[in-house]
Design a protein around this nucleic acid. Structure first.
Lengths: 158, 158
DNA sequence: ATATTTAGTTAGACCAGCTAACTAATTCTA
DNA sequence: TAGAATTAGTTAGCTGGTCTAACTAAATAT
């Protein structure tokens, strides 16, 4: 629903792009959400689990940072995922305040499955696109992700 | 967190792009969410209000369609927005089952303000990008949005 | 005239996010 | 080294957005 540029001043152009990107992201995620219940892995879980699998084990705080959410959000997320047997929390022996989160075998395999499910529809749509468009989107995805982690995000994660 | 392609088979390539796009979208929205409370317009509200302003007045069902959510979601969203004086619901005189939603003056002006706030950080980041990248993202945004409305979405709504 | 369909709502559940206030462990400092 | 300050994480309690199932009311079709 963006693109209400009357006469695109330079600034207006970026603004429109930003707006369009924003609403595209909303719609994209909404359309993917359909697969959620099927796999038992929602977007946030999927995203967190992915970090845990590929960058873990890591402390709760590290996960919060990587996921750009507040600590309590992670507490709840990880607690629920632990209950579902996807991850485990292990007290760090050096610093006994920190809890390391690591994926279980089940978590690992569900991640593969869940990612597959969730993006499969998108991947299918992608396949129908001309090669140029696909390449464009591949580059765009990287750009967007960088854009979305602006100031001091030095997260190694992905 | 994507890009775990060992050897990119054709299918694998699309899968990776899809995955990356997915996680880019999550991160993008999270990073934008910071501005939410400031403007009082969350993502969904902003998106819906945008539809209402530029494609409205329109029936609840039309809004649900445009926003790709179930009717009850719209009921609540619009009810709350009405309470906040952003929109009004008017019973259609022809078909007295339908409720037309239209933006109030306040809604209109808050939309401008809200969009500005919410995407301003993104737009700023965009400005720092080389022109090629900006153009790429502008095209990508359109593509993504189309991708996200797959089968029979003939919504006129931008 | 009744049955069916359609538009929207209500009820009730769930998940994801937040802030504020807390506990426990660690580190700093006087 | 005792006490203060900091840091990691949790709990409690709120808001918002989403869903499905079951409903009401209006319109349409048989």
């Amino acid at each position: 629903m963006p693109s209400r540029s009357r006469q695109a001043t330079p600034v207006q152009a970026e603004f429109d792009t930003a707006d369009r990107l924003h609403s595209a992201a909303i719609h994209l995620l909404r359309s993917l959400r359909v697969e959620d219940r099927a796999s038992g892995l929602s977007g946030p879980r999927l995203s967190a689990l992915s970090v845990i699998v590929f960058a873990g084990p890591l402390p709760m705080s590290g996960l919060a940072l990587a996921e750009q959410v507040q600590p309590p959000t992670i507490t709840k997320l990880v607690r629920d995922m632990e209950q579902d047997g996807l991850v485990e929390r292990v007290r760090d022996t050096d610093d006994r305040r920190v809890l390391m989160v690591r994926a279980t075998v089940r978590g690992r395999s569900l991640l593969q499955e869940g990612r597959r499910r969730r993006v499969v529809r998108l991947a299918a749509a992608l396949e129908k696109l001309p090669t140029v468009d696909r390449k464009l989107l591949a580059r765009a995805a990287r750009l967007i992700d960088r854009l979305a982690r602006p100031p001091g995000s030095k997260t190694t994660v992905s």
